[in-house]
Structures are given as structure tokens and as C-alpha cells.
Design a binder for these strands. Structure first.
Lengths: 152, 152
DNA sequence: GCGTTACTGGACAATTTCGATCAGGATGAT
DNA sequence: ATCATCCTGATCGAAATTGTCCAGTAACGC
């Protein structure tokens, strides 16, 4: 249950693009510098985001990347799925299609609930939200709970 | 954002112990057979659970494992933390103590919200709940949503 | 066209984690 | 004592993670 460097970088890059408006493309190098991401690695990531139709690129002089859709329509989930595949899995497979023997037969329902709660956050927050610092109410409520900030 | 085989196995083993009551210890081999877990691997896992004070072991003839506390007091989160460490992390570190530059400064709040929602499920469900198939209301509600079952 | 710039795509590699296996030892109930 | 069972730690291959590098190609200004 960890967020990989790749997913984290991808989201940060997208947010950076969102914050820059969509007038002119932003160079990968500029994003890498501002966000402290290894340039070569970031290039791979941006390639995947482009493949997924999340960003568009422009080559050559004055080239760079920009969001392919309005920032308010791109969710964190979109980005994570683009670079990491499915949001949540159990032993590499989706939780709903494995049968558990014996006393654990009801366990999939728990994993489903976990995934659902995960989705409820990442499918709701857009890169525009993060860039502006104004998170959706439900999410803000979660992250404002002081208890949520305690390392446990 | 995946649940590892180890965490999955650990929970299933604990649930199996819970379902067996706490009269007599259950052999690791029996759990391995019923749940389809490689015995050697399971022994490692049970060792970690014992180290964490979640199960107790009995050696020799008629030996085996039993829960160290009432099943209703052991949460899924306890088990995952015992075998995997912290529930959620970003690039290996807790989300609250990394600073993000530029436009991504508010991103940690999103990761915190994710973790919070995660915790809300796994800290609430006990092994007794899973063994009996009666999940806490809030969790049941999440997993009963048909939408939660769609692979996306 | 030419040169500069910057994305493109893929190959490669170090390190770590995952999932599992195994051997041999310790222990405790009978 | 004996035997069943847990205990410990080493080891291992495969895959994922986190990068690095580079030759190619498109766009643009001059």
C-alpha cells in the first residue's frame, strides 16, 4: 500500500503543467528542475502520460508539454492508472475475482471496501484542485482531521 | 497501491485461527492446507505475527498457533502493520513529512486523505468480523455498493 | 536548408522487494 | 527420551522499482 515514486512524480508533473496554464508548452527540463525529478526518468513518465492522452507534447524549439484536457477534468486516479495500471490489487489481481477458501470467504468484501475508499479520494481530486490548493469538500474534510496526520 | 501476498496470507491465517475458536492451537500445516498457502512461507509470516504479539505459539506435539488476544480486538490494520510496516507511504516515507516544491505544495493533503480513508476501513474491521462474515456497518456499506465491484 | 532545440522510444542496469524454499536447531508435551 | 512441531536464518530467482543513456526525429527561426 504505497505510492510509488513514479506515481508521485507523475502527479506532481501534471499539477505543475496545470499551474502553468495552458498557453504555451512547458519543457520537461523545467518541470524536472522545479519539482526535483530526475530529467530522464521524468521523460519516461511524460511519455506514458502522453500515451494515455493526459498530456500533449510539442517538439523542437519552444516545445514542451501541456495538458491534453482541462485541468479540472483530470483526476489523480487518471494519472495513477496511466503510469501504474489498476489502482488496487490483491497479489496482482483485482480483488473481486479471487475466491477464498474456508473462514476467509468474506475477506474480498474487505478488500473491495478498501479499494472503494481509495477511489473515493483519488477519483474526486483533480489536478486543478491540487494546483489551486482547493480540494473537494469531502477530501478536505478527511485531510483536515488532525488524527489523519498522526504517523501510526 | 497493492495488497501483497504476504499481507493477504497473514490476514487469512489470522481469520482461520479466529474461526477455529481459541480452545486448542492450530497447526501451521493445517492453516496452510485450508488456505492454500505455501507452508514454509506461512511459517515465516506466523513468526512475524508472533513477534508482533498477535498470535501465540505452542511447540511440540499438539502444538500450533492461536490468537494472543480476542479476535474482536485484532484489526486488519494490526496484521498488515505487523508484516508490512506502515500502512501507507509515499516513496517509502510517511506522507506528512515531505515538502513539495512549487505547485504541488498541497499534494500531501491528498495523500493524507488517501491514508485516512484506508485506515478507516482496515482499522475498523477485526478478524472476528471477517470470520463471522459480519462486517461493521460502515464497511459493509462500502462493499455493498455495486459500483465498488466494477474493475476500473 | 541548417542548426538548434526538445521530444521519442527503447535499451540497459543497479538495487530492492517479493514470494518462496530449505536446512538444521530448539522446545516442550507425553 | 522421543517425536511432533515450531524457530531461525540463509538463500534464491524473478520481478519491480528507479533510474540512466542515447541515437533518432520533428519543429522552428534564420
Amino acid at each position: 500500500m504505497r505510492i510509488s515514486a513514479k506515481a508521485d512524480y507523475a502527479v506532481r508533473a501534471a499539477v505543475e503543467l496545470a499551474a502553468a496554464g495552458n498557453e504555451k508548452p512547458i519543457k520537461a527540463e523545467a518541470v524536472a528542475n522545479v519539482q526535483g525529478i530526475p530529467l530522464n526518468f521524468l521523460e519516461n513518465i511524460l511519455g506514458e502520460l502522453r500515451h494515455a492522452g493526459i498530456v500533449r507534447s510539442q517538439r523542437g524549439f519552444e516545445g514542451g508539454f501541456r495538458l491534453a484536457r482541462p485541468a479540472a477534468e483530470i483526476t489523480i486516479a487518471d494519472i495513477i492508472r496511466a503510469v501504474e495500471g489498476p489502482l488496487a490489487s490483491v497479489r496482482g489481481a483485482p480483488p473481486e475475482d479471487s475466491k477464498y477458501p474456508g473462514a476467509a470467504s468474506e475477506l474480498p468484501r474487505v478488500w473491495i471496501a478498501v479499494r472503494k475508499n481509495l477511489r473515493d479520494v483519488v477519483e474526486q481530486v483533480t489536478v486543478a484542485d491540487v494546483a489551486s490548493g482547493r480540494l473537494p469538500r469531502a477530501v478536505a474534510k478527511l485531510s483536515d482531521d488532525p488524527d489523519a496526520w498522526i504517523t501510526r
